[in-house]
Amino acid sequence: MNTRLNQAQPYALCLFRIVIGLLFACHGASSLFGLFGGTHSASVGTWPGWYAAVIQLVGGILVMLGLGTRVAALIASGSMAYAYFKVHQPEALLPIENNGEPAAIFCWAFFLLIFTGPGALALDQLFSQRDAESGDAGAREKTPAVTV
């Protein structure tokens, strides 16, 4: 049973990454454009709302696609930690009391992705395979012949 679970782990991580990224991107789109029943609450350039919404939209899309996953997850996790401690935590100690549960959950979900990576079916893997294939061919072409 463990073997099957271990074999499925990259795909489960892929699904986790896609769902978390999609939810985060939707949150950003809601704040920026009023989509999905949200209110257009982030005026261009306002701190921190507009910048947070851009991070949510762009970071969520990058994580969802598995493109620059670890860096995007680091920035997203940090933005949610900032949101929790600057916006929610001053209202009350616990997330259940201060409506900071989404920020805390997103923070920890993205924190996990920093260390696990994107899992299967990520664009990062596609580009790294292409680079490895072209890099091997390029290395052979550029390597000078050694004569003695």
Rank of each mutant, 00 (worst) to 15 (best):
S41L: 10
P102Y: 00
L15C: 12
L5S: 03
T69E: 07
T3N: 08
F24Y: 10
G78R: 04
I96T: 13
T46K: 11
R140L: 10
G59A: 07
I105W: 07
T147S: 11
T147Q: 12
P144S: 12
S77H: 08
K86H: 11
T147I: 12
F33A: 06
F33Q: 02
S128L: 10
A92V: 10
Q129S: 15
L62C: 11
S77I: 07
A72F: 02
E91C: 00
C107I: 00
G38W: 03
S43E: 15
E91Y: 08
V58Q: 10
A120G: 02
A73M: 08
I61F: 12
E101F: 07
N2I: 12
L13G: 05
K86W: 05
N99L: 04
F110R: 04
S30P: 04
L13I: 13
G100D: 06
I55L: 15
V44S: 09
C14Y: 03
L15D: 01
L65N: 08
I105L: 15
C26F: 14
Q89G: 02
A132E: 13
L121H: 07
S43N: 11
I20C: 08
Q56H: 14
S31A: 15
P144V: 06
I75V: 15
F33D: 01
L35H: 09
R140F: 01
A73N: 05
L13M: 13
G138W: 10
T3Q: 13
I75H: 00
G117W: 06
R70A: 04
L35A: 15
L121R: 09
A83R: 06
R130E: 05
G34V: 12
H88D: 05
I114P: 08
Q89M: 14
H40K: 15
D131P: 00
P144M: 13
V146C: 06
L23Q: 09
Y84S: 10
L112S: 12
I18D: 03
A92G: 06
P118H: 11
C107L: 10
G59V: 08
E141W: 13
W47S: 11
Y82N: 04
I18F: 08
M64F: 12
L32K: 04
A25Q: 04
P118N: 10
F85Q: 04
M64W: 07
A120W: 01
I18R: 02
A132Y: 05
M80H: 06
E133P: 00
H88G: 07
L113R: 01
F85K: 00
L32E: 02
A53R: 03
S41E: 01
V54C: 13
L94I: 02
Q125E: 09
A137H: 05
M80C: 02
Y51W: 15
S30Y: 01
W108E: 03
H88L: 06
V58A: 14
C14A: 15
D136Y: 12
G38Y: 03
D131W: 09
L94D: 11
Y84Q: 04
L57N: 09
Q125C: 01
W47F: 15
K86S: 13
